[in-house]
């Protein structure tokens, strides 16, 4: 299955580099035509792979770790915390002073969001308490973002931040790719190094400890890893919701419900979903391009409704 998914990622990556309002820019035959491919579409396709992989893998890790099928960076407020930190870095001038401040702030924000969540919700806690905590974290982050915007010196603050929060990988350049790639790759590496223990952790912390896992250290590593991936992805692409929720669900049944085995397929499916959604917003006949995050929410939110209805009351009641 992995090789099929990997092939799909490659195919969509190439499609992403070939599709756009200009269609075949190389027919222009000059610098401008090549700039469309190299400066606009290539960064976009690369970010599609990186951001999608980061979100898909983050979702798979969080769902296994929290033993909760609704855990996802967007739903539980991790993306919102990353956004808040990135907005702070932006309007304080830090991001202008040195470029890495933006992804670093996103990472700190995302990790802080996970830490806040874990302080209130132990692994395996009921879905309701997890989601309520997510609602609270999301609300706090949204309020803090509004506060920072009200203090921001720049006249476009509300408009630009609204557009950015709606999520997009359009019109980025290679600087954004270089900014996010090391952190996302590093985070993914960390998770894959600990994949073995994730199976143990999904049995509950006590069971994991009895199998020889150092759950405290493992928790710290996973917090850092998800922080790196979700934080860096949010810093360059804004909030792209529901990818982390949908990707693990699509692969879980096919890998025999083993959390460790969902990781790589979830990562690939995440990349596929973001690349496909990003191509869709380009070809949809709207007067101007829909924001990527708006599109993934339009498609992903009904999926969440379906998951909840399918699951029935069994785990929702706890």
């Amino acid at each position: 299955m992995k090789s099929v998914l990997a092939l799909l990622v490659v195919a969509l990556f190439l499609a992403s580099a070939a599709i756009g309002p200009a269609w075949w820019p190389w027919r222009l035959g000059d610098e401008v035509g090549w700039a469309i491919v190299l400066d606009l579409r290539l960064p976009r396709a690369l970010l599609g792979v990186l951001v999608g992989a980061a979100l898909g893998l983050s979702g798979a890790v969080l769902q296994a770790w929290l033993r909760n099928p609704l855990a996802e960076p967007g739903v539980i407020g991790v993306s919102a915390c990353a956004s808040f930190a990135a907005v702070c870095a932006f309007y304080s001038g830090l991001a202008a002073a040195f470029a890495l401040a933006l992804p670093l702030a996103g990472i700190v924000g995302a990790a802080a969001g996970i830490a806040a969540l874990m302080s209130a919700v132990r692994a395996g806690a009921g879905t309701v308490s997890l989601l309520l905590m997510g609602v609270a974290i999301n609300a706090i982050a949204a309020a803090l973002i509004s506060l920072v915007l009200a203090l921001a010196p720049n006249p476009f603050a509300f408009q630009e931040t609204w557009l950015w929060l709606a999520g997009s990988i359009a019109d980025r350049d290679l600087r954004h790719v270089l900014m996010a790639a090391p952190f996302i790759v590093g985070g993914a590496g960390l998770v894959l190094m600990h994949r073995r223990w994730l199976d143990a952790l999904s049995l509950g912390e006590d069971a994991a400890r009895s199998l020889g896992a150092d759950t405290r250290r493992l928790g710290l590593w996973l917090t850092l890893a998800v922080g790196l991936m979700a934080g860096a992805a949010t810093a360059v692409a804004g909030m792209v919701g529901f990818v982390g929720l949908v990707a693990p669900h699509l692969v879980r049944a096919r890998v025999g419900f083993k959390p460790g085995a969902t990781l790589v397929p979830s990562m690939l499916v995440g990349a596929i979903l973001v690349l496909a959604a990003d191509i869709a917003v380009r070809v949809l006949p709207t007067a101007y391009e829909l924001q990527l995050g708006v599109f993934t929410s339009l498609v992903g939110a009904p999926f969440l409704v379906r998951v909840i209805r399918r699951a029935q009351a069994s785990w929702l009641a706890t």
Partner: peptide, 16 residues
């Protein structure tokens, strides 16, 4: 594009 719509950079470049 309507009165207060948005461009994508690609559309701008392609139209030269």
């Amino acid at each position: 594009i309507p009165a207060y719509g948005r461009f994508s950079l690609e559309a701008v470049l392609a139209a030269q």
